[in-house]
């Protein structure tokens, strides 16, 4: 029996494990995709205190090693269900059933798709969700980025240094990022910003060849980088845990859920600001609530 099982080993879950191990609680982290969560896709983190410029993989590995050194256990498995028993909880994975007194859900979020018919088939054939991973394959070519948030803008800036031409396509007229980033974007001669536009068709012949906008304008591009935000990953919990209309776990700054002994941390809960620093903050709060619950 574990004191706490943490589902999801991104920054929120890993930080929770550090706080729990420092209180000598027996902790298991479960994540089928290894540790780190979304942050491993980030080439450079500049908005987290004390580590300017660190890359996401190193950041994640640092927290993971810190948690491991403190004695957190780790299982690379897919969680399929959780069950609330009278005095304990069960976490079911494809291969095992684990028991714990409490659970912290820290499953984060995954990339939102455009939901165009041939989108899934074109992933890896012109479509990408990771500019830093795949940008080099589009050296001197024309590409587009879709999205208007910080990730989209960072991707467009990054790609402008590699590609011939970069279109940034956004559905409304407001780019949401720091002024400094927007200024950098606007200073790039090879970036064309197209506002109030949606992509309505992906034109491909095995690989992506062009995209069609809702005004029927066609842009010839070899690559399309999708950065339109995230969706939560909470389907397996929905019978037990209250979710909001978007699928996020209903909670607040206390990181509690509708079930006693089940807490939530990070991007997967209702919140206004989804950032690295708010994820790690949630990890600390959820762990502290868990410790109080276990000690009473």
């Amino acid at each position: 029996m574990y004191d706490v099982i943490i589902i999801g080993a991104g920054p929120a879950g890993l930080t929770a494990s550090i706080y729990l191990r420092r209180n000598k609680k027996k902790v298991l982290l479960i994540d089928a995709l290894g540790y780190g969560g979304q942050i491993i896709n980030t080439k450079r983190i500049d908005n987290y205190p004390a580590t300017p410029g660190i890359d996401g993989f190193t950041f994640a590995t640092n927290i993971y090693n810190q948690a491991k050194d403190l004695g957190a256990e780790f299982a690379m498995e897919t969680v399929t269900n959780i069950i609330n028993k009278d005095d304990y909880k069960e976490v079911i994975t494809k291969d095992n059933t684990y028991k714990a007194k409490t659970i912290i859900i820290a499953t984060g979020a995954k990339n939102r798709h455009l939901n165009l018919p041939n989108e899934k088939d074109l992933i890896g054939k012109g479509l990408s969700f990771c500019a830093t991973c795949d940008g080099n394959f589009y050296k001197d070519m024309d590409v587009a980025v879709v999205g208007g948030g910080r990730v989209a803008i960072d991707d467009a800036i990054y790609l402008s240094n590699i590609c011939n031409k970069v279109y940034l396509i956004h559905r409304n007229d407001t780019l949401k990022a720091d002024k400094e980033e927007i200024d950098t974007l606007r200073s790039k001669d090879n970036v064309e910003i197209i506002l109030n536009s949606n992509i309505k068709e992906l034109i491909a012949n095995n690989n992506l060849e062009a995209i069609k906008l809702d005004n029927n304008k066609e842009l010839k591009v070899n690559g399309l980088f999708i950065a339109i935000g995230q969706v939560p990953n909470n389907d397996i919990f929905k019978d037990l845990i209250d979710l909001d209309e978007y699928g996020y776990i209903k909670s607040d700054e206390n990181c509690t859920t509708n079930i006693k002994g089940i807490f939530v941390a990070g991007d997967t809960r209702t919140k206004e600001l989804r950032q690295l620093v708010t994820a790690t903050s949630d990890g600390a709060i959820a762990a502290t609530k868990c410790i109080n619950y276990l000690n009473n």
Partner: peptide, 13 residues
């Protein structure tokens, strides 16, 4: 590739 975070995460898998 060495510079690709998800690739490095895939390697233990």
């Amino acid at each position: 590739a060495t510079w690709c975070g998800p690739c490095r995460m895939l390697s233990p898998i």
